[in-house]
């Protein structure tokens, strides 16, 4: 799918992400409290891919403050995005993850491939 096609499809759907720029960093928050629904996860993956593709070397912080539940399919979407960011030599940070969800990252050992920070300030500092 080209970027133009992706933008066209996404424009027709309500966004599942809140995206803002803070300096060179793109901050992303989820609209949903539960990231479980397959079609939502697919949409989130496509929207995150568009954020990654927007700049040559993406610096992205994903804030999970709003998220209460996520599934293994959501983890899969995050891994795909992490691989995409790495492919562009960018940086991806995860922040504000609920302790129960953080445990999911630990159990799956995904805390070894993601850089996870307790709060957003700490995550922002890590881009320096």
């Amino acid at each position: 799918m080209t970027n133009e096609e992706r933008k066209h499809i996404m424009a027709a759907q309500a966004s599942r992400l809140k995206v803002s720029k803070v300096g060179a960093v793109t901050q992303v928050e989820f609209v949903d409290r539960n990231i479980l629904d397959e079609s939502n996860i697919q949409q989130i993956g496509e929207e995150l891919a568009a954020v990654v593709d927007e700049v040559p070397t993406p610096m992205i912080m994903i804030r999970f403050g709003n998220v209460q539940h996520l599934s293994s399919a959501a983890l899969g979407a995050l891994i795909t995005i992490n691989n995409r960011v790495k492919g562009k030599e960018g940086k991806l940070r995860l922040a504000e993850i609920d302790p129960q969800i953080r445990e999911v990252f630990k159990i799956t050992k995904l805390d070894q491939i993601f850089q996870i920070f307790d709060d957003a300030d700490e995550a922002m500092s890590s881009f320096d």
Binding site: S71, S72, G76, I79, V104, T108, L110, Q112, I113
Partner: peptide, 11 residues
């Protein structure tokens, strides 16, 4: 670890 699927059963 970087394979996006296959975590459901282990969870």
């Amino acid at each position: 670890l970087e394979v996006p699927s296959g975590r459901g059963i282990m969870l």
